[in-house]
Design a protein around this nucleic acid. Structure first.
Length: 421
RNA sequence: GUGGGUGUAGCUCAGUUGGUUAGAGCACCUGGUUGUGGCCCAGGAGGUCGUGGGUUCAAAUCCCAUCACUCACCCCA
């Protein structure tokens, strides 16, 4: 019989790593709450149409990476490949915009894309992110980027990270620019790669994203998006730059930063890390002023970002943030079957007082239990054997100092309470 | 979907031009100590050598296929 293994591109998060996840999660929650953002949790699967309509039919995500199946009643369902769409759906469905003109939300959870796994890329992966609905002003963009900045800095990742910033303009600007770009490219179309030729039809801006030397060379003299900004686009970006400077958040303007989802407008940004290999985008986001409307809500501007938690953890891995929290405080050594009721009872008393207490459910020898106690990292051991039971006493051992004494069973919890004060 | 690299004990890895019963370190278990951990010493358990086929008197070793992992392309977090 074959061993059943985890599915390709998924990972078990084992105890030796789960504390790192918890730490990252708590940083995210902390920073978000300091900005007044509240958590939203949405289902892990949705109707397929939600993603094809918001992310874009022609994007890689929708066209070839989604886990999609037909439910028994015939509706097409999809494991969420990203979270903004779900959050927007929920925002509309529960009329959050009606409750207050600004909604500040954050989320974390698993996402699914059927790609070939590599470093920093999995089929089930985890993101955290934030979304702010209601403001079209650049100070909202600045706040979102500031949240990202704070989290990165709490994670100790600022030094190896750069913020790439761009505006892809709003509707009219992008139409004009798209046409100009197509006019520029079309005489050279046959020199482009197959994918770029496809993009020429579907999403010409994405061609700017190319890494091919030859195509980059070809694009050297291509029209620049910045020349097509409306006045509004222009002042929006300039204000944002000012705000970032005011907060001492360094950035690089990168007019080739386009991003692969269709719903973005104006501001787009990406934090890239030098610690990650090929998949170096730790966090990416942008403004999506048209998305709520596309999904059937009242026109509402929005902006947000999503960050890859696995990528954060890879980048954080080479820093030594000691996990000082002991797993166990007290190891309860019970030497006699008759002592088990007392063991369970006293252990619970200690737990009620906040101590982490374990005992040996294998009824092993004292030697084994103490060895296990040592390994567990417990600072103290309590020893209950026949002699102790006869005296209503218990052995107390300081495993670090190697000292031992006998105390009354009735005094155990008091004894430990005094010890920690 | 395409290409490269790697598969030997729970983990990290040795393994000679193909040659007897496949090894080490760490981890684990037992004992040295009738009820005392760590350090030390002695012993023990643990392997379809990824899988299937082929070549050969003989395969962990050579050949083919396949699977898994991994890195990269692509794309993205």
């Amino acid at each position: 019989m074959n061993q059943i293994r985890n599915i390709k591109g998924t990972h078990d998060i084992l105890p030796e790593n789960s504390h790192k996840w918890q730490e990252l999660e708590s940083i995210v929650k902390n920073v978000c709450s300091r900005f007044g953002y509240q958590e939203i949790r949405t289902p892990i699967f949705e109707e397929t149409g939600l993603f094809s309509r918001s992310v874009g039919e022609e994007t890689d995500i929708v066209s070839k990476e989604m886990y999609t199946w037909e439910d028994r009643d015939g509706t097409s369902l999809t494991l969420r490949p990203e979270l903004t769409a779900s959050v927007v759906r929920s925002f509309i469905q529960h009329n959050l915009g009606g409750q207050s003109p600004i909604q500040r939300l954050f989320y974390m959870g698993p996402l699914f894309r059927r790609e070939r796994p590599q470093k920093g890329r999995q089929r089930q992966f985890h993101q955290f992110g934030v979304e702010a609905f209601g403001s079209a002003n650049p100070e909202q963009d600045a706040e979102i980027i500031a949240i990202a900045w704070h989290i990165l800095s709490q994670c100790g990742l600022i030094e190896n990270t750069v913020l790439n910033l761009n505006s892809i303009g709003s509707g009219e600007c992008r139409n004009a620019y798209r046409n100009a770009l197509k006019d520029y490219i079309s005489p050279h179309l046959d020199q482009l790669s197959e994918t770029s030729q496809k993009r020429f039809i579907n999403n010409p801006l994405r061609i700017l994203d190319t890494k091919s030397e030859r195509e980059l060379d070809l694009l050297k003299d291509a029209p620049k998006i910045s020349n097509y900004y409306t006045e509004d686009d222009d002042t929006h970006l300039e204000s944002l730059k000012n705000f970032l400077e005011a907060m001492n958040i360094p950035f690089t303007i990168n007019h080739r930063l386009v991003r692969g989802l269709d719903y973005y407008t104006k501001t787009v940004f990406e934090f890239n890390s030098s610690q990650l290999g090929a998949q170096d985008a730790m966090l990416g986001g942008g403004r999506y002023d048209g998305l709520v409307e596309v999904l059937g809500g009242r026109p509402t501007p929005g902006i947000g970002f999503a960050a890859g938690m696995e990528r954060f953890l890879i980048a954080m891995d080479d820093q030594d943030r000691g996990n000082n929290d002991p797993i166990v405080d007290i190891y309860f050594v019970c030497l006699d079957e008759k002592g088990l009721p007392r063991t369970l009872q006293l252990s619970n008393e200690l737990r009620n007082n906040g101590f982490k207490v374990i005992f040996d459910p294998l009824r092993r020898s004292m030697k084994s239990q103490l060895r296990d106690a040592n390994r567990s990292g417990a600072r103290f051991a309590l020893i209950l054997g026949e002699t102790e039971m006869n005296d209503n006493a218990i052995g107390f051992k300081d495993l670090k100092q190697g000292t031992q004494k006998t105390i009354a069973q009735s005094e155990v919890t008091n004894f430990f309470d005094n010890l920690t004060n």
